[in-house]
Structures are given as structure tokens and as C-alpha cells.
């Protein structure tokens, strides 16, 4: 009986949360590909590079670079957008609170794994360097933790929490846009030797080593906080 309840719980969380985020992940990937196809926003490609590598490879390169930025945003934005309603809905349908919290973690996992696989696939096709990859993954983990903190703020402070979330995401998005579009990535990336530039500096290793424990601790704290808040959450749908 206990086992069947556990299976029921896992199955319905997989069904619900994967359906909830699959659409939006696909939308992000489509936006990424369309954007990459239509605009060369990084400014890194030249007519020479297009001639040498071909338009498709330039597009894929752009797509990968955009998705590195967008991908860092997605673990932050998706739980903050879907988490609160999903938690309310699943509890209202008779889901356990603890089960719902793990459902949200499954959503994080889905987002991180799919975005990482997508970026990795593009990088594989482009035969790009992998030196930035561990740092990127650590960034996603940190982003997921921040997204979960925003979700906690929404559940705990309702409208004020939503306003705070919108502000935080806006600041994050503007920073990311500046980073990619306004050339910060070039100067910062070039100077620090991070991201997709093939400059394996010691700083990169240091940042990666520092960000993993920070991300992991933030994530763990956010889960504990979410458990505490969901325990007292009153359903409103």
C-alpha cells in the first residue's frame, strides 16, 4: 500500500510538473533559434567567419551563446512564474505538501537538465570548448536557488512577493541583456577569461570552485525555506 502511494505520488508529480514546464522550455528554445537565425546580436561573427564557417554554423553559435544567457535565466524565471500556481493547484487536488515541494524540485531538474542538454548539443555540433561548462552548470544551480527564493517570497508575501519577483527578474534580465548585447561579455569575458572564450585562466577554476558550494548551499537553504512556507500555505486559486 505504502509503495503504491509512493508510486502514485511520483507519477502524478512527473505528469503535472513536466506538462507545466515543457511548453515554456520549447518556447524558449524556439525563441533562441529564431533570434539566432534573425539577429547576430553578439557581434562576434564577421563576414569572414560566415564565409568560412557557413551561415548555419554562425546561427548555431549564436543560438548557443544566447542560450547560455537565457539558460541561466530559466531556472530563475520558470519556478517564479509557475511555482506558486502549481503548488496551489496540486494541493487543492489533494496533493501532499511535502510531495508538492519535491514536485517543484523535479521542475528545477527538468529545466536544468533540458537546457544543459540543449546547450551541450549545440556545443558538440560546434565542436566548441567545454572549459566554461562546469561554471555554467554551477550558475544554473545558483539561479535555481534564487528562483526558489523568489517563489518563497511569493508564497509568503503574496502580492508584495510577486512585485518583488518581477523587479528582481527585470534587474536580472537587464543585466543579462547588457552582458550579452552591450559587449560586457566581451570585455568581462575577455578580461577574466571566463564563459565561452577559450582562455583557461586560473580565475575560471576559482570561480567554478567557489560557485558550486555557494550554489549548493543557497539551493539547500531555499528548499528548507520552501518546505517551511508550503507547510503553512493556504490554498488560493
Amino acid at each position: 500500500m505504502k509503495k503504491s502511494l509512493w508510486i502514485q505520488s511520483v507519477r502524478r508529480n512527473v505528469y503535472y510538473w513536466s506538462r507545466a514546464v515543457e511548453g515554456i522550455i520549447l518556447v524558449f528554445i524556439c525563441i533562441d533559434l529564431c533570434y539566432a537565425a534573425l539577429f547576430g546580436m553578439t557581434g562576434r561573427e564577421t563576414s569572414e567567419s560566415i564565409r568560412q564557417t557557413g551561415a548555419l554554423w554562425v546561427m548555431l553559435e549564436n543560438a548557443r551563446d544566447y542560450m547560455i544567457g537565457m539558460g541561466l535565466m530559466m531556472p530563475l524565471v520558470i519556478p517564479a512564474s509557475y511555482g506558486k500556481n502549481g503548488i496551489g493547484l496540486t494541493i487543492s487536488f489533494g496533493g501532499k505538501r511535502s510531495e508538492t515541494v519535491w514536485g517543484v524540485q523535479f521542475m528545477h531538474l527538468l529545466v536544468i537538465v533540458q537546457v544543459t542538454l540543449y546547450v551541450a548539443l549545440l556545443n558538440l555540433l560546434l565542436e566548441g570548448s567545454w572549459i566554461w561548462f562546469p561554471l555554467y552548470f554551477a550558475g544554473m544551480l545558483t539561479s535555481a536557488a534564487l528562483g526558489q527564493f523568489l517563489l518563497c517570497a511569493q508564497l509568503r508575501f503574496s502580492t508584495k512577493g510577486v512585485v518583488f519577483t518581477v523587479l528582481a527578474i527585470t534587474v536580472f534580465a537587464i543585466t543579462a541583456i547588457f552582458f550579452l548585447v552591450a559587449g560586457w561579455s566581451e570585455t568581462w569575458g575577455g578580461t577574466l577569461g571566463i564563459f565561452w572564450l577559450d582562455e583557461p585562466g586560473g580565475l575560471l577554476k576559482l570561480l567554478t570552485a567557489a560557485l558550486y558550494p555557494v550554489g549548493a548551499v543557497l539551493y539547500a537553504v531555499s528548499v528548507v525555506l520552501l518546505i517551511g512556507i508550503v507547510k503553512k500555505y493556504e490554498v488560493r486559486i
Binding site: 502514485q8 502524478r12 503535472y16 512564474s81 500556481n85 502549481g86 493547484l89 487536488f93 489533494g94
Partner: peptide
């Protein structure tokens, strides 16, 4: 009002179907 308000009737019912044994 968030993702629940934007849900289609069939998606809402499908979500309910996952949860009621």
C-alpha cells in the same frame, strides 16, 4: 493572475485527473 488563470479547461481537468486516483 498567473498560470492557473491561463490554463485551458482541458489542461485543468487533465491536471485534476493526475491527482484523483
Amino acid at each position: 493572475g498567473g498560470s492557473t488563470a491561463e490554463m485551458k479547461v482541458r489542461d485543468y481537468l487533465r491536471a485534476a485527473s493526475f491527482y484523483y486516483p
